[in-house]
């Protein structure tokens, strides 16, 4: 597995089509899962700022990490389902679900850099860029494995995006509440509101 880590990592980031042959092997798939776990860890490091603001304990940080892992894994499963269904019913293809899942997992590799989110100001655009990078990887993978054109790959991924938008609008609030419960909180501290409240309390003294 370890011998596949670097080729998978660098090949994916460079959008090399041949990289997708690696994930068909058992050790390649394991390497893919390891990179996914690293991406989750990195993303949680990127969120360290908000946890710090909220005075989170180590236990809460660990629970947040597990929560992020579960959320990203669930997201990958649903996204895979959307792409698989689109390929099957819109394009008349019968792709292997596991293969699509592997492509989606690989598309999370750029998130290994999501710890950069913490960089002031620049971090705000980093996550968006990484997401676009991931989308490009998905399109490349779909092209390599199932011969989809860029337009078809983009359309299949877009179905997933739309579905997520709808799901997030409908259940995003509830999901966040569950996440906060996991962290043992009712809500995140809004630094701006809290800062104003603290200052006003002092000024009224």
């Amino acid at each position: 597995m370890t011998s596949n880590l670097w080729p998978l990592f660098s090949g994916t980031l460079q959008l090399h089509e041949t990289t997708f042959d690696l994930i068909k092997t058992r050790s390649g798939f394991q390497a893919c899962l390891a990179l996914f776990a690293l991406a989750v860890l990195s993303k949680s490091l990127g969120e360290a700022g908000i946890l710090y603001i909220n005075r989170a304990t180590k236990g809460q940080y660990l629970r947040g990490l597990l929560g992020s892992l579960a959320v990203l894994f669930f997201t990958a499963l649903v996204w895979t389902g959307c792409i698989w269904l689109s390929c099957r019913y819109a394009l008349g293809l019968t792709p292997d679900y596991r293969q699509v899942f592997a492509i989606v997992l690989v598309s999370y590799v750029p998130l290994i850099f999501s710890f950069l989110d913490i960089i002031p100001h620049l971090g705000l655009v980093v996550f968006k860029l990484l997401t676009i990078w991931g989308l490009l990887i998905t399109i490349t993978g779909l092209h390599r494995e199932f011969g989809l054109t860029i337009g078809q790959g983009l359309a299949c991924s877009a179905v997933g995006w739309v579905l997520f938008y709808v799901l997030n609008s409908a259940f995003g609030g509830a999901a966040e509440k569950v996440r906060l419960r996991l962290l043992g909180r009712d809500r995140w501290v809004n630094p701006k509101e809290a800062a104003v409240a603290l200052l006003e309390r002092e000024l009224r003294r």
């Binding site: 700022g49 002031p120 100001h121 620049l122 705000l124 630094p191 701006k192 800062a195």
Partner: peptide, 14 residues
């Protein structure tokens, strides 16, 4: 950059 970041700015500026 911290000062101008909407996430950290409110704290820094306070």
């Amino acid at each position: 950059a911290v000062c101008s970041d909407p996430r950290y700015g409110p704290i820094y500026n306070l």
